[in-house]
Simulated assay, not measured.
Amino acid sequence: MEAGLRGQIEMWKYMLSFADSMALRCAVELRIPDIIHSHGGPITLSQMVSNFHDSTSPDITCLARIMRLLVRKKIFTAHHQSDGGETLYGLTDSSRWLLHDSELTLAPMFLMETHPWQMSPWHFLSHCVKEGGIAFKKAHGREIWEFAAENPGFNKLFNDGMQCTSRVVLTTIISQYKNGFDNIGSLVDVGGGTGGGISEIVKSYPHIKGINFDLPHVISTAPMYHGVSHIGGDMFETIPNADALMMKWILHDWSDEDCVKILKNCKKAIPEKSGKIVIVEVVLEPEGNDAFDEIGLALDLVMIAHTSGGRERTQIEWKKILKQGGFNRCNIIKIPALPSIIEAFPE
């Protein structure tokens, strides 16, 4: 193929790549993966729409066109029956991650990231380049944490998204971080949301006293978990004392300067000789060939769109802020997940 034509095709793909996300969001909102799963196998479009309990006049032709694209993208399978009957649609390894009722699901995160509240800041990236500032604030008039505190609907959307990704990542951490929690008597999950993460660790390590620490408006909606206590507060002011701390996708929300402030408070909260922090974050490899490396670069742009100066960091950048925060030694442990484990020690 001639190079210029290939380039044109690539631009059309990028121009319309949002259609993939929106078609998939539609399928998640309609709970199509759940409907197929509950049926026990592939089903027809007619069977799908019969499960839309709040729909009086579904448009099967519209659904067929959406499913046609998602089949092409290998999100669903399509089996055309030899007798000319209706096409049967089934799940794939990809769409199984969008089951709402599965213990491990990315459906709430997908709905959060593609919601209009979260999409509108992306339209301000060029403004951020030209004049600086915070994309989310340009879109909504306030920063994301203020917006969440004032808007219960967004607060729930955000917390549900964070909790589902936390569960996915923690399942991997618990299986891969061998003996990492063995000698810890108490563990604070700093910025732990509604507590789902720390509760999973306590289930696997019942000797640990779990403390879930987050902003008061987040803690106010947190359910009770066995072995976990909830404490509301501000990590920029003080962090509850414990043998060890965990921060999962927290520091990437903040600038280097803010991260150093948080890390200094972390250092005050743990024993000087035996304490440690377990940081779960992306370690960028801009030239890397790992399956998650390109996703890390995309997530770095999410930080521009949604945070107040946050960013994903390379190994060199992580070591720099850790040292400035009082943590001179660290181990980076790769796991089969988007983030890595960064153990940091104050000695």
Rank of each mutant, 00 (worst) to 15 (best):
A3G: 07
G4K: 15
R6M: 14
I9E: 09
M11N: 11
K13R: 14
M15T: 14
M15W: 08
L16N: 15
S21Q: 14
P33Q: 06
P33M: 07
P33W: 04
D34Q: 14
Q47I: 07
H53W: 04
S55T: 14
C62W: 11
L63K: 12
R65A: 09
I66S: 06
I66H: 05
L70G: 02
L70E: 04
R72N: 09
K73L: 15
H80G: 10
Q81G: 12
E86G: 14
T87G: 07
L91S: 02
T92F: 05
S94D: 09
R96M: 13
W97M: 14
W97K: 12
L98T: 07
A107S: 13
E131V: 13
G133P: 07
F136R: 13
H140C: 09
G141K: 08
W145N: 13
F147L: 15
A148I: 08
E150P: 09
N151E: 05
N151I: 02
P152E: 04
P152Q: 04
F154H: 11
N155Q: 14
K156S: 15
N159H: 13
T165V: 12
S175E: 12
F181Q: 04
D182G: 06
L187C: 12
L187M: 09
V188L: 06
D189Q: 06
V190K: 05
G192K: 01
I201E: 01
Y205M: 04
I211K: 05
F213Y: 12
L215D: 06
V218I: 13
A222W: 01
A222D: 04
P223I: 04
Y225D: 08
H226F: 14
I231D: 05
I231C: 06
G232F: 08
G233H: 06
A242C: 11
D243F: 01
A244Q: 01
K248W: 03
H252L: 02
D256W: 00
N265V: 02
C266F: 00
E272G: 08
V283L: 01
P286G: 03
G288T: 03
D290R: 14
L297H: 00
L299R: 00
D300Y: 00
M303Y: 00
A305C: 10
H306N: 09
R311S: 00
R313H: 02
T314H: 03
G325Q: 00
F327L: 03
N328R: 12
N331P: 05
L338R: 07
I341F: 07
I342R: 08
